[in-house]
């Protein structure tokens, strides 16, 4: 039976290939951008408050910093305790036009040795984990110099 593809968090991203983007919201009054999305109130204390509309975030940004998880994180991160732990890289990416930094996992196979601060990366669809019925989808950062 085919697994259902389900975002790990609803409404944080959309698309499944070149059209993949993170989704934030923007205040109609002050143009502040929020990710994770704010849907009720603008958090800018100097803003009287406007409507918050969904906006796609820039697909490309530059590495603000990076690290990795050499040890298995605790739940609710889902891992198979039967399998040896495979470290993955985490990248904090600065988006120029939104002027914010978003954290994400690197695409599988990219390690800290492949990364530098300031390097250009792009957001791509990724798989967080799979269980019997569901493929849990997420976003990954991929260096634009990598074609894998």
């Amino acid at each position: 039976m085919a697994r259902t593809r389900t975002p790990v968090v609803a409404d944080w991203f959309t698309g499944d290939s070149d059209d993949f983007t993170l989704l934030g919201t923007r205040c109609s009054a002050c143009a502040s951008v929020f990710f994770p999305r704010e849907d009720i109130h603008c958090r800018n204390p100097w803003c009287a408050g406007g409507d918050l509309a969904e906006v796609p975030l820039s697909r490309r940004g530059r590495v603000w910093s990076y690290t990795d998880s050499r040890y298995r994180p605790p739940s609710p991160y889902v891992t198979d305790p039967e399998l040896p732990w495979e470290p993955y890289a985490l990248i904090a990416v600065e988006l120029e036009s939104e002027r914010l930094v978003v954290l994400g996992q690197a695409v599988p196979g990219v390690t800290v040795a492949d990364l530098t601060v300031g390097m250009e990366v792009e957001v791509v669809p990724g798989v967080l984990h799979e269980d019997a019925e569901t493929t849990w989808t997420t976003w990954h950062w991929r260096p634009t110099g990598v074609t894998a």
């Binding site: 790990v8 968090v9 994770p36 603000w64 910093s65 990076y66 690290t67 990795d68 998880s69 040890y71 994180p73 605790p74 739940s75 609710p76 991160y77 889902v78 891992t79 993955y88 985490l90 904090a92 954290l103 994400g104 996992q105 530098t116 601060v117 300031g118 967080l128 997420t138």
Partner: peptide, 25 residues
């Protein structure tokens, strides 16, 4: 809850990000 569920981002990974940033800057 979300940072663990979505990213597996433990406290030391944030410390790692800050440390790497200092090395670069």
């Amino acid at each position: 809850w979300l940072r663990f569920r979505v990213l597996g981002a433990t406290n030391p990974t944030y410390f790692g990000l800050y440390a790497r940033r200092r090395m670069a800057v």
